[in-house]
């Protein structure tokens, strides 16, 4: 930052009601939308920043854990993402939604950690997993007769199925099917077009569906 523009804190004026707004409980007014909290965080409001993290932290953690597969790695990732967000909010232009921007930060951090630990081959290629082995794992998660925890078993089967997907397909599937992002938002996260996102999702859905057939 040069001497003529020192201390510049910019935030592009945003719509008054953002898509990041979440409905409140039965009592009290609804909480401020993401855009308002981001604007305040950019101006140094720590409470507003904490609210944003509380709002999006669970899904970001879920995303990071899903890709990294390790609790400590996921925590490290979240720490870096939240730190990056706090430092970068003053320069956040609001071109994308806050949620999308946080996923961009999370994906970059996941890449960084995966590259550092050589979890996956460079270039986002398919993880070195044996399809038959994963199918066997999926079958193993099937609940036995009378077993009550069917939901946990199904989640375990899904986790195994997702491991078959290359990172981009997996990110597209999770952001669409679990987190509910639009194709355009996923395109921003993946730095690609909506038509490419559509293709990634088609392939991911087919793989997940066929893998979960083994679980039935």
């Amino acid at each position: 930052m040069g001497p003529e523009t020192a201390g510049t804190h910019r935030y592009r004026r945003s719509p008054l009601a953002g898509r990041g707004a979440r409905g409140g409980g039965a009592a009290g007014p609804p909480p401020p939308p993401d855009e308002v909290l981001a604007r305040r965080a950019a101006l140094g409001d720590k409470d507003a920043f904490s609210q944003l993290v509380e709002r999006h932290g669970p899904s970001l953690h879920r995303y990071a854990y899903g890709l990294l597969g390790d609790a400590q790695d996921a925590e490290d990732c979240l720490q870096e993402v939240v730190l990056s967000a706090w430092r970068a909010f003053p320069s956040f232009r609001g071109d994308a939604s806050v949620r999308t921007w946080l996923y961009v930060l999370a994906r970059h951090q996941v890449h960084k950690q995966r590259a550092a630990r050589a979890v996956a081959p460079a270039g986002g290629g398919r993880p070195p997993l044996d399809v038959d082995e994963v199918a066997e794992q999926v079958r193993d998660t099937r609940p036995g007769p009378g077993e009550e925890n069917v939901e946990a078993a199904l989640l375990a089967a899904l986790e195994a199925a997702l491991r078959l997907l290359p990172e981009r397909q997996r990110t597209a599937w999770v952001l669409r099917e679990v987190e509910g992002l639009s194709y355009a938002e996923i395109g921003v996260v993946l730095s690609t077009t909506t038509s490419t996102v559509r293709g990634l999702l088609e392939r991911a859905r087919a793989t997940v569906a066929s893998t979960l057939e083994e679980w039935r």
């Binding site: 720490q79 939240v82 899904l158 569906a209």
Partner: peptide
């Protein structure tokens, strides 16, 4: 099944997040 599992995952309270959220925000 995939749709059902996605719904479960969405509703799942991530114990990992609950454990780390305070320290993550505080450090930042």
């Amino acid at each position: 099944l995939a749709a059902r599992a996605a719904l479960l995952l969405r509703q799942h309270t991530d114990a990992g997040w609950v454990a780390v959220r305070e320290s993550v925000v505080s450090r930042a």
